[in-house]
């Protein structure tokens, strides 16, 4: 039998959600007419050899590019500032809201290398209680030593790096059990 009533659902709108969970809704079919606050105008995407791509809105030019994308997540660089959005359908937006209310119960925090470099020194040890902001290790990158601080208070669960070791961006360095 065929699922008589259900068929691929038409999506009526898409929602761009930023890192702070602020949402920007856009109706489908998608239009070039954009209203922001009380300003409204037609959006144009222009491209030329000299400037590359830019947006033209209300007679102002905004250089724009996609810095990175991963599935439905886009990092857009507009006028030199980057913005992160995930593009959600009404269904996935609901899911996002649900998961956000749930994620308060997160137990572990993984500290990953913010940039490639070399571990100069590990300042903490496994099992030690730490407070947010406490320096955990020193990462040397671009000839500068960077202090990597604890993003949360808690306890060091596991340290994955040794001094002298090289790390790549996003390499797991320290696991922290969140707690007071």
């Amino acid at each position: 039998m065929i699922f008589g009533k259900s068929s691929k659902k038409e999506i009526k709108k898409l929602i761009a959600v930023n890192a702070k969970r602020k949402k920007f809704e856009f109706p489908i079919p998608f239009t070039d007419e954009l209203k922001i606050g009380d300003r409204q105008g037609e959006m144009k995407i222009k491209e030329d050899d000299k400037h590359g791509t830019y947006l033209l809105w209300k007679n102002k030019k905004y250089p724009v590019e996609v810095l990175s994308k991963n599935q439905n997540r886009y990092e857009i660089l507009l006028n030199g500032v980057s913005y992160n959005f995930s593009i959600e359908t009404p269904t996935s937006y609901k899911r996002l809201k649900y998961l956000n209310t749930k994620s308060g119960s997160k137990k572990n925090e993984n500290l990953e290398a913010p940039m490639p470099g070399k571990i100069v020194e590990v300042l903490t040890e496994e099992g030690r209680e730490i407070r947010a902001g406490e320096p955990l290790l020193i990462l040397e990158a671009m000839k500068m030593q960077n202090e990597i601080q604890a993003p949360v208070s808690g306890k060091v669960k596991k340290i994955h790096v040794k001094s002298g070791e090289s790390v790549l961006k996003d390499d797991l360095m320290v696991e922290i059990i969140i707690g007071k």
């Binding site: 039998m1 065929i2 699922f3 259900s6 068929s7 691929k8 609901k94 899911r95």
Partner: peptide, 27 residues
């Protein structure tokens, strides 16, 4: 199911298959 951030089995099947093409057996 939605409240758990999940879809139902039927909704998933609908997403996977081309429109009106899924034939269920042993329902």
């Amino acid at each position: 199911q939605h409240n758990k951030g999940k879809l139902t089995a039927r909704e998933r099947i609908d997403l996977l298959f081309d429109k009106d093409t899924f034939e269920e057996i042993d329902a």
